[in-house]
Design a protein around this nucleic acid. Structure first.
Lengths: 339, 339
DNA sequence: AGAAAGAATGTACACGTTCACATTCACTAT
DNA sequence: ATAGTGAATGTGAACGTGTACATTCTTTCT
């Protein structure tokens, strides 16, 4: 079933059918109706490959997901949200989103990029690229619209979009400060990752801005790991350091902290207020429900879709843009003013 | 840059270049080398759309995700695993996976199917289709290879693959029986969903097989909801019913049960053993770490990829198959023999 | 009524591959 | 030497669509 078959059935030329399919203005209403009817009856839909061949456009955006995403440092429930936003907007604009995965992660990843390039996509969104500068360099040489999600290279001309981790940590800390806390302990994530460094920065910023010099004695490192945070909390308390609140760089560590405090017979929030980060699924389910920072997920996906579309459809080389999205504080029951 | 440009540079015809690209045996080694070299130098990769137009194959599999997946009854961390398995296998076979989302869920979903059909895919995998029989009927009329993941219609000729919920619940219950429990309470999920019914069936099966007649007094319904399970547990205990163990149809309800038992000063596992279902991210993080049932996620994706590929590449109409994958018991610290 | 203008439709080619078929080449057997 | 053979390469059509240009039809204006 092709455009020509439809043409024959409707007693018009295939060009007219093409015009009907593309909403060309110069088609008599009567003809349009007749052609449309036959198209519907036959259940015809034009071959995309032929269109693509002719136009050079594939209406297909690649999403390269780097392996780390399936590791714990990356909240697994981040993915559905961003996919939702991406596909929703892309489909709306007539595009598809095609998935590519890199399991090899650091050092590797080259094969995944090659696979991408062989697929004749219109643009590429890259999710989860972090420390692999060799891969980043390779990527920067692709002459295809590229958008980085959740990471950013200042020295490479690649547009990016990410949630503002610094602002998120700032807001979390500010919340604790606002309700009266001054001795706020901080559980750092993994400083090798951007988010780990950024969240610490936000914490420090809020503290200093309020005139509270952060006390190194109540700064811990939990490496984004529950067990690690658990142990760190035990030693923090046993060291005798005083603090009335704690800010954890992610919810998983917050859970570790919660477990440790329970073991030490300290109540949350009465004895210690606790704020997490990420709004992981379980944050609202545990006791007490965790106050935390939520990154916009669906919204991030939608914005990313908009950016890559404007790059793909823009006539000329678009300028490099770096977009930061605001995060929001989700107030639950793990925080209260200090005694 | 096309196959012809390469041909000119290599002083051969475009057909020879095509032969080199497709590893045709009838090319002199010397010529192959020369052509390959130029292809590499130029960074040429053949236009997929032209290939597709010619061959009728797109090397593209659609994944239709129905909205429910982003709702709580579906563990969000299921998605990354299955995507991983799917893309890994499909990419290996030279295929892409393209995402389509249906936000409208029940009743709607038709637009998503239409979008799919307009994309000229080679096959479609559908994830999360449940009660929407109208949509199911529509789908069954697509004459394209189709595979259902996580659901199955017995009266429609559509192949399916899913993890064996009945077996999972059976194993969970059997575990409790094996370590000596007899009074095992059951927290049902949502009976409107297949998994809800299947997990109950597995529980009943294991009980009866062991010669223990299930006591209606210790059967609750938690609708896959934490708060609901919390309340149900409170009333169960307050009703005075005796039980030494509890099996919850998912981890989220297990968490609700845990919270309720803690409030009632009942210890897990000393006073009540608890088994969940799904191996959600937090299962290993909470105190005590939850014994639960894990569905194969990546493996499910890989199997699904294999199935759709054999349907797509098989010469003739393949027969309808229904595949069930075994689940496995993850033993942690929320279970112990009764006193 | 006839010409001019513009709307509607048709014709034919291009897009970049693959593939059937035709041709040439290198080598062997007579 | 020469026909015969199979390997290596070339030629040209086909895949299904969009579109520039050509043609026809319709309307309007004088």
């Amino acid at each position: 079933m092709t455009i020509k078959d439809i043409a024959n059935l409707a007693n018009v030329s295939h060009a007219t059918v093409s015009r009907v399919l593309n909403n060309s203005p110069n088609v008599k209403e009567e003809t349009r109706q007749r052609v449309m009817k036959i198209i519907d009856q036959m259940g015809f839909s034009p071959r995309m490959s032929a269109r693509a061949l002719n136009s050079g456009k594939n209406y297909n955006i690649g999403l390269l997901i780097l392996y780390d995403i399936f590791k714990s440092q990356f909240p697994t429930d981040f993915l559905p949200g961003i996919l939702s936003g991406l596909t929703r907007e892309l489909n709306k604009a007539g595009y598809m989103l095609s998935l590519f995965l890199d399991e090899a992660a650091d050092g590797g990843g080259m094969e995944a990029v090659d696979a991408l390039l062989n697929r004749n996509l219109d643009g590429v969104i890259i999710l989860g690229l972090e420390t692999n500068t060799r891969l980043a360099y390779r990527i920067s040489r692709i002459h295809l619209p590229i958008l980085l999600v959740n990471h950013r290279f200042d020295d490479l001309p690649i547009s990016s979009i990410m949630a503002d981790d610094v602002q998120g940590a700032y807001v979390a800390t500010k919340h604790l400060l606002d309700i009266g806390h001054r001795r706020i302990a901080f559980m750092e994530g993994d400083p090798r990752y951007y988010t780990g460094r950024a969240r610490k920065e936000g914490y420090l910023l809020a503290m200093r801005e309020t005139g509270v010099e952060p006390d190194p004695a109540i700064l811990c490192v939990g490496m984004y790991d529950e067990g690690c945070a658990y142990e760190a909390t035990l030693s923090l308390v046993n060291s005798g350091a005083r603090f009335s609140a704690m800010f954890a760089s992610n919810d998983i560590m917050a859970l570790g902290i919660l477990n440790a405090l329970a073991r030490l017979q300290l109540r949350v929030p009465e004895d210690v207020s606790l704020v997490g980060f990420d709004d992981t699924q379980f944050a609202m389910l545990i006791k007490p429900p965790l106050t935390t920072i939520k990154k916009p997920r669906t919204h991030l996906g939608m914005e990313a879709a908009g950016m890559i579309l404007s790059m793909v459809e823009g006539e000329k080389e678009a300028e490099v843009r770096h977009v930061l999205l605001k995060t929001s504080l989700i107030e639950r029951a793990s925080t209260c003013p200090p005694r």
